[in-house]
Amino acid sequence: MMNKERNSMVVLATTDLTVGYKSRPIVENINFALSEGELTAVVGINGIGKSTLLRTLGNAQPKLAGSIHIGERQLESYSPLELASKISLVLTEPIASKNMSVLELIALGRQPYTNWIGTLSTGDKTKIREAVLMLQLEKLQYRKCFELSDGQLQRVMIARALAQDTSIILLDEPTTHLDLYHKVHILKLLKSIAHQTRKTILFTSHEIEMAIQLCDTLLLLDGENNPFGQPCELIEQKAFETLFPADVVSFDASTGTFRIEK
């Protein structure tokens, strides 16, 4: 759990945001501000609206109320091409063709910058190479995506987002279907990328205990106050103690873990 002084440069912020579908709100009153170089998790119970929020922040669906700012400008003021150079979005949908090689899939991250025939420049190739190295994919780069394990494919998808070279990376459930070791490995990689590259990485997760241990900040969607802050601050505020029914699961503030009530 971190207690560092937060960077003052806000990269992504929301004010009184409401997300949902058409006229049906799923979660309201979302307020947070993310600084550069931070790893942040959106956590909460199933169905609370974590993926809906992520899709809204990535402009994959419209907000219902409130505002989203990317830097000094509102999200809606960006053209699709401008936004593609600001935000990379990794959703849980399966990739279009697993017959691509790892390198080909990562290269798709450079689409916002290539010319009309999609030719990769020397600079594009450098960004792709950097992503391959950072995600430890050197030995897999010429393999077909259908040959990869879930954990390996997840690293490739993160590498594609990294190759896009945006200041903000949004990831929906990047540790789904992974075992404990690979969950930790992916989250530690994301933390390292955020701190080393100064990119702002926001991901949704059910792994609340891991997020408490590894993230700089957390957004806890509870459907009411939706508290945001450093993990230690949220623990002090007792934000996790009412997340689940107390007679089933209780939160131990001293260890930052949940305990099953027998």
Rank of each mutant, 00 (worst) to 15 (best):
E38M: 03
E38N: 05
E38I: 00
E38F: 01
E38T: 02
E38V: 00
E38P: 01
L39Y: 00
L39V: 00
L39T: 00
L39M: 00
T40F: 04
T40N: 09
A41K: 01
A41Q: 02
V42F: 05
V42P: 11
V42N: 08
V42R: 02
V42K: 01
V42C: 09
V42L: 11
V43T: 07
V43S: 08
G44N: 05
G44K: 07
G44H: 05
G44L: 08
G44C: 04
I45T: 15
I45Y: 07
N46K: 06
N46S: 07
N46E: 08
N46W: 10
G47K: 13
G47Y: 11
G47D: 05
G47C: 03
I48K: 04
I48T: 04
I48G: 00
G49I: 08
G49C: 07
G49L: 03
G49P: 02
S51H: 04
S51L: 03
T52K: 08
T52F: 03
T52C: 10
T52D: 12
T52H: 07
L53I: 08
L53K: 05
L53Y: 03
L53A: 13
L54K: 14
L54E: 12
R55W: 10
R55E: 14
R55Y: 13
T56Y: 01
T56N: 03
T56C: 11
T56A: 12
L57C: 04
G58E: 09
G58P: 12
G58T: 06
G58R: 06
G58S: 07
N59C: 12
N59A: 15
A60F: 15
A60S: 15
Q61W: 09
Q61T: 13
Q61A: 13
P62N: 04
P62R: 00
K63M: 11
K63R: 13
K63G: 10
K63N: 09
K63V: 03
L64V: 08
A65R: 14
A65G: 12
A65T: 09
A65Q: 14
A65L: 11
G66H: 01
G66A: 07
G66R: 02
S67F: 07
S67L: 06
S67V: 03
S67R: 13
